[in-house]
Amino acid sequence: MLPQPLRRIGERLPLPAKELTRELALHDLHRAYLRRQLLNSLLALETPEGELLPDLDTAIRDLVQRQGISGEAELERWRLAQGLTLDELQSLATFPARLEAVTERIWGEDVPGIFLQRRSEFDTVVLSLVRFSDPDLAQELYFQLLEGELGFTEMVEVHARGADQLNRGLLGPVRLKNLHPLLACAAERYTEGMLVPPLDIEGQVHLIRVESLQKAQLDDSLRRELLQDLCQRWLQEQLQILESRLLTQHGEDISP
C-alpha cells in the first residue's frame, strides 16, 4: 500500500525556482525534471532493515553501458565533466535498482490481484489472417476453407496482399490487449485450429484461423511490468498536480 506521505506528494513537493523553470521549459525538460523529483521522493523512503543494497560494481557497469563510456578513466573524466561527486555518481548508478526495490516494496502486494483482474490482456495469440476488400470473395473463400476445398496456406499464397503477404498470413505472437478488440474477442472465443467466420473490421473483411493461445503466467518479467505500470500511474497523477501548481504559480507571477 502506498504510504500516506506519498499519496498527494504533488501538493507538497517544492516547485523549481522561476529561473530554473524557464531554463527547463526552454529545453523541454520541465516534465523530466518533475518526474525525477517525484521518483526521488520514492527513494527517500526508509530502507527496511535486512533489505539487500544494489551491487555497486554491477550498477557502475550498467551506467557505463547506458552512457556509452569505455573504461574507468573515461568514466572518471565523464564524472568530472558532469560535476558529480563520487557519492553522486554511485547514487546515479544505483538509481534503477533502488527504484525497482522500492517499487516492489510499495506495490508488490497489489500485483497478484491486478494480474487476476487483467490476466486475459496478457494472453498471447498467434493468428493466421488475410484481409479482403471484397466481402463476397471473402465469404466464398471461407466456405471453401470450411469444406476443405482450400487450405489456409494456399489461400495466403494466392490472395494475401501487402503486410499479410509479407508476414505469410501470420500475426503474432501478440498480446490480446494489443489487438483490435474484435480480433481479441475472436481469439478468446475460438479454440486452436478453428476458423473464425468472416469478420468486418473498419471496412476490411478478415478471414482468421486461431493457431495458438498462450495463457499468461505471472512470471518475473510480467511482475516487473505490472509494478512499473503501478508506479507510472502514481507518477502521472502526481505530475498533473505539480504541473497544475506550476501554472497557478506562473499565473500569480504575471497577474497585475
Rank of each mutant, 00 (worst) to 15 (best):
R189N: 08
A44V: 11
A138G: 09
E19C: 01
L239E: 10
L170Q: 10
E49G: 05
R224A: 15
L222I: 00
R8T: 05
E140Y: 15
Q117S: 07
Q232G: 05
T153D: 15
L246T: 02
Y33P: 04
Q217L: 10
G203L: 07
L239I: 05
L20T: 06
Q4E: 15
H206Q: 11
R175Q: 14
L146A: 13
Q82W: 09
H30K: 01
H180Y: 08
R119F: 04
L20G: 02
S133A: 15
M155P: 07
D253P: 00
R35S: 03
R22W: 10
L246F: 04
I9D: 00
D28K: 12
R31P: 02
V210R: 09
E72T: 10
T94K: 09
S41I: 10
E149M: 02
L235P: 14
L227S: 10
N178V: 04
T191I: 09
R35G: 00
L39P: 10
Q67A: 13
L182F: 08
A44T: 09
I201P: 10
D134P: 03
L226E: 03
L227E: 09
P135C: 11
G203D: 13
I114R: 11
D136G: 00
L42G: 03
V210D: 06
Q37L: 08
L43G: 02
L75Y: 04
E19K: 02
P48D: 06
A59R: 05
E51V: 12
E11V: 01
M155K: 05
E46I: 06
G193K: 13
D55M: 08
P173Y: 02
Q232I: 04
I60H: 00
R161L: 15
S133Q: 15
E192P: 00
L129P: 09
A186R: 11
E140S: 12
L222P: 00
A97E: 13
P135Q: 12
R119P: 00
R8F: 09
Q65N: 14
P3C: 01
S41K: 12
G251H: 12
L141W: 14
D62P: 00
F122I: 00
W234P: 11
P96A: 09
R245E: 00
A25Q: 07
F115H: 03
L176I: 04
L179D: 10
L53W: 11
H180N: 05
I208Q: 10
N178S: 05
A25L: 13
G68N: 03
E76M: 02
Q4T: 14
G68T: 01
L170R: 12
L13I: 05
V102P: 03
Q236D: 12
S221M: 05
M194S: 15
Q217Y: 08
E88R: 11
V130T: 07
H159Q: 11
L129G: 03
I254S: 01
S133K: 14
G251S: 13
Q204C: 09
L52E: 15
P96L: 07
F132Q: 04
L183S: 04
R224G: 13
G251M: 09
D134F: 08
V126C: 06
E225M: 10
Q236W: 08
L145Q: 11
R161P: 03
L6H: 02
E104A: 11
T124N: 06
E211F: 05
G68I: 02
L84Q: 01
S133C: 08
A101R: 14
R189Q: 15
R233L: 11
D229H: 15
L195F: 10
I114K: 12
E157P: 00
